[in-house]
Design a protein around this nucleic acid. Sequence first.
DNA 1: CTGAAAGCGCTTACAG
DNA 2: CTGAAAGCGCTTACAG
Lengths: 334, 334
Amino acid sequence: MSVTIRDVAKRANVSLGTVSRYLNGYRLREHNRIRIEEAIRELGFRENFLAKGLKTNRSMTIGVVLASLTDLFATSVITAAEGILAEDNYSIVVCDFQASQEKLEQKLRFLKARSIDGLILFPGSCEAADALREYLDDGIPVVIVNDDMPGLETDKVTVDNASASFRAVEWLIHQNHRDIAIINGDQNTYTGRERYKGYLEALKTYDIQPRNEYITFGHFSNRGGYEAAKKLLDLPDPPTAIYTTNYYMTFGAVIAINEAKLRIPEDISFIGFDHFDLSDVINPPLTVVEQPTDKLGELAARTVLRRVKGDYQDFPMQLGVNTRMIMKESVRTL
Amino acid sequence: MSVTIRDVAKRANVSLGTVSRYLNGYRLREHNRIRIEEAIRELGFRENFLAKGLKTNRSMTIGVVLASLTDLFATSVITAAEGILAEDNYSIVVCDFQASQEKLEQKLRFLKARSIDGLILFPGSCEAADALREYLDDGIPVVIVNDDMPGLETDKVTVDNASASFRAVEWLIHQNHRDIAIINGDQNTYTGRERYKGYLEALKTYDIQPRNEYITFGHFSNRGGYEAAKKLLDLPDPPTAIYTTNYYMTFGAVIAINEAKLRIPEDISFIGFDHFDLSDVINPPLTVVEQPTDKLGELAARTVLRRVKGDYQDFPMQLGVNTRMIMKESVRTL
DNA sequence: CTGAAAGCGCTTACAG
DNA sequence: CTGAAAGCGCTTACAG
């Protein structure tokens, strides 16, 4: 029903192999090129990617697998990646696995069955799946975002989680804070553990004894951040500064602070994580650690693309992107 | 290189047509069925969707096109849709168009070239694209979410935007509020216009004269909501209640209220829109209009699936889903 | 219920 | 540079 390469060939008076070659960027006689281009235009021909994929064993799609589509960090990264991939005519197929190891396996198999050419994975709290090894065995490139997945030979792009924490806490220390609390994320995630580690290292480096009651856990959620902050503020000896380790906990904590009628930074200093709209709407705007989601997405995309195209130089790569601190007014010098 | 239907046939000692029929759920002799199942298991056979798609002209993928992947409403809907589609072995291909009409056209063509079987579209502030008509011409089903797109013959699923506003404002009126402000979204979106309309109708129904200074516009963003609220609170004669018409503006407005050191609901009553985590973390929890994103997503998914499968009964459908009000403590009775 | 065969729309050695 | 031909992994009338 639709117009095929064969129709174009007939109209342009060439063989269909020639049309195919034209489509794939080979040189051909000027004269033929022009006739083919005319025919394509007149007929409104469009390539059939399915047929092409069947022959070339490429689907021109990259799978994206993440815990939740409503996670702002991941979707920001994906947005950037999609832009890069689209430039090369790749589209993205998205699946979420709702932090369930079982669902993760299932989705990975699901996508594999659709012969995706590459995979970008946000593992979150899940572990290296068996299904993932099947990708590696079959030579399908996998790029993992913000996770280490020890023992898994794939490319990985991460931000400097530990260093980000270190510098955030160091900055507080330089402002003469000593009673610095952290609101941690899940410790069964790589980012959660790394960010906690950076906090501990900064304290250690400056010979500050970590205090158990300042170390709280907010599960990376709004409510978690809220409750952790509340607990901190209720302490007989509350911290002078709070550092939260992701976006959602940041706003939960800010709400708790507002509610306690404390002012930032007069009553309590604050450093948040992730730099999205709300961070600057809040008054005062928050000093935060910014993850370069656009760079991460771009890097992830370019890396899969390289691998998909067969360039396996420096495999496996462990690519790091630096966070930066957005300096606003939520930290007071003591 | 990979194992095909032909290998299975050989091993099971049947023709490859028989294997194909088995795969597609036709009945066959018990004896053959068992041998085929064995062969599939032993060989680790997996269908090649590309080849299948080439013959059947179905790619088993549904395109999802939206303005931004970081929009919580849309991603919530998509999450629900993805679940339903995956049950039927469909996957989703996602593109965002960053509120650019041109990009929208481009992405629609891009996806069409990949022979998606159906499309779920969140048009936002964009208009019916030419590319969209090509879908209709080619019989590719399109389901539009939360938009009316007059003149476009497709299925549409929306929430009761105007009625939602009406009821929210009516509730405020019943609590004896008369000075009710609205923070509107973009008026070049369907949802923005409808929600505004419901507000005006409620006032009219209860013979309340709308006041210009109470009608503000926050562009559906955090900052917009913040600034609109600020303006309202600075009024010589400020409203006794504020109604915000989406999630992002709700939190911008709450921040402005906090900042003005006003208490909800003692100093000002408040009804928000959309029910996500933060709504309940805030103190007091906000009374909000909840959009049933899961139902919307499910409905959108089931509708494309029906059409994809050729069931065009009642086409085009205009499906409405009711919002409900989550009653919390942010509204005071005057 | 099943086999043999044609064909979906492309790509790609192989000759020339 | 180009044509003719084989084939990617499936589906589906057509006979039987």
